[in-house]
Amino acid sequence: MTPVTSVEGKAYPFGRKNVDTDVIIPAHYLKTITRAGLGRGAFETVRAEPGNVFEDPAYAGAPILIAGDNFGCGSSREHAAWALGDMGVKAVIAPSYSDIFSGNAFKNGIVAVVLPQEAIDRLLEVAKDNPITVDLESMSVTTPFQDRFSFEMDPFRRDCLINGLDEIGLTMAREEKIGAYEAVMAAERAWL
């Protein structure tokens, strides 16, 4: 995973609530056996709406997406995170995420920042015409107008993101512990 310490640039001022993963990437794009190229299907139904932020040249290639509550709800499809990554999004800012999506985003090096709705409202306003910055070192989102919104993040996830750590590799290094657990279970719950 590529290390990420900060994400700076334009942000899609999307702001919508309950954005489900069928909206982020419709099912007909899921018949792929690779992780690449899903950006072309991202937000397909939203892109069909007049005046949407994704077709607006002002935000083309923006690395940040600002959304409403419960972003990424619904299906567990990691294709949603791959699609966001493929369209160049490296950070999402929202008041809340579905549990599965926030895990998927993290595993693909996408920073999922949680900020209260008031902060989101302000950022949606600023992002219309200005860049914003998400900084993982200081755990803050800042604007050119001296706004500064601090956020919290699980220390393990932050560490993995900043250092680009491979979680599977880290777990495989715990082989001894896993083997010991299996040995105990083979005796105690042999029916498994």
């Binding site: 567990s76 499809r77 990691e78 995170a81 599965i100 895990g103 998927n104 595993k107 693909n108 393990f156 979680e167 599977i168 777990t171 495989m172 715990r174 896993i178 299996e182």
Partner: peptide, 16 residues
Amino acid sequence: IGTSEVEHVLATQTLL
């Protein structure tokens, strides 16, 4: 779970 977690479970039979 997402696909990265599918891979994690296949490789380690565990999840964090």
